[in-house]
């Protein structure tokens, strides 16, 4: 049941905002991985991947977070993280950050660690080769493909395959799967009106599915979509995919 490659020691990179705002997602990740027979540890000095600073233009501020990450995870067998945008940050930008540091050791460490770093759903479908994690979640669900998962990580239909294998779950496809929800990190604050307009479109698409739950692999998009669903008192809940897969 633990998939290809036997029992793994998984180091969890929870990310700053999941740690602070969505502990239930991390708890669900632990539950799923342990249910599959793997062990989970949590390097305690981890903080943030640096995405917010890097993407907003504060690249000098993001740089020190890279050696911190390496220091925390360099001995890990595999690193798993339940956030597509943070993984995309690492895969897309860490090599460049290391390059800029002119630190040969850091460059080498980044090159070594990145192949062992996995987004949660991709870890299940690609590293472990599993689709059915033995979950039960009796609800009508629609899946939101976050842009970083879709374009940078190329998740494809991996998350949907995981969801289809969940007992009791009815998956309904959203009409604008490839359309950005308008979150974009600080974009949602700096360009609030445009972000809101994009969000309104996305929420309309979610409501058109008549799903009870909107899920995805990134709580930042879900927080944004869920914030509007709550404001409009729609009753539709945002739930991270890990929490669905942990259901029993």
């Amino acid at each position: 049941m633990n998939g290809i490659g036997g029992i793994l020691r998984v180091s969890l990179f929870i990310t700053c905002y999941n740690d602070t705002l969505f502990p239930e997602t991390g708890q669900a990740v632990v539950k799923v991985l342990e249910r599959l027979g793997h062990t989970v540890d949590f390097p305690s000095k981890q903080t943030c991947c640096g995405q917010m600073h890097w993407n907003t233009g504060y690249q000098e501020e993001a740089l020190p977070l890279l050696p911190r990450f390496i220091e925390q995870f360099k001995d890990s067998e595999v690193v798993v993280c339940p956030s597509t945008s943070c993984i995309a940050m690492m895969k897309d930008h860490y090599p460049l950050m290391a390059e800029r540091s002119n630190d040969e050791g850091l460059k080498k460490a980044v090159a070594e660690i990145l192949p062992r770093v996995w987004e949660f759903s991709q870890f299940l479908t690609q590293k472990l080769g599993i689709e059915d994690v033995g979950a039960y979640f009796p609800h009508r669900v629609t899946y939101h493909a976050s842009c970083h998962g879709l374009r940078s990580l190329q998740l494809g239909d991996g998350p949907q395959r995981l969801l289809r294998a969940v007992r009791g779950l009815e998956l309904v496809e959203i009409e604008t799967l490839e359309q950005c929800c308008g979150f974009g990190g600080t974009f949602a604050i700096k360009n609030a009106e445009v972000s809101s307009a994009m969000l309104a479109d996305k929420v309309r698409s979610v409501l058109n599915t008549r799903a009870e739950v909107v899920t995805g692999c990134d709580n930042s998009c879900l927080m944004h979509i869920g914030g509007s669903l709550h404001r409009q008192r729609t009753g539709v809940r945002p739930v991270h995919i890990a929490e669905i897969l942990a259901g029993e």
Binding site: N18, P23, G26, A188, M223
Partner: peptide, 27 residues
């Protein structure tokens, strides 16, 4: 400047326990 968020969205408050507090307590 954070008001841009709450023009159209609510924000759930921070849970009482962070993930790391939960994990460490569990350990």
């Amino acid at each position: 400047m954070l008001g841009g968020w709450t023009q159209v969205r609510d924000l759930r408050v921070m849970p009482k326990q962070t993930f790391r507090e939960w994990f460490e307590e569990r350990e």
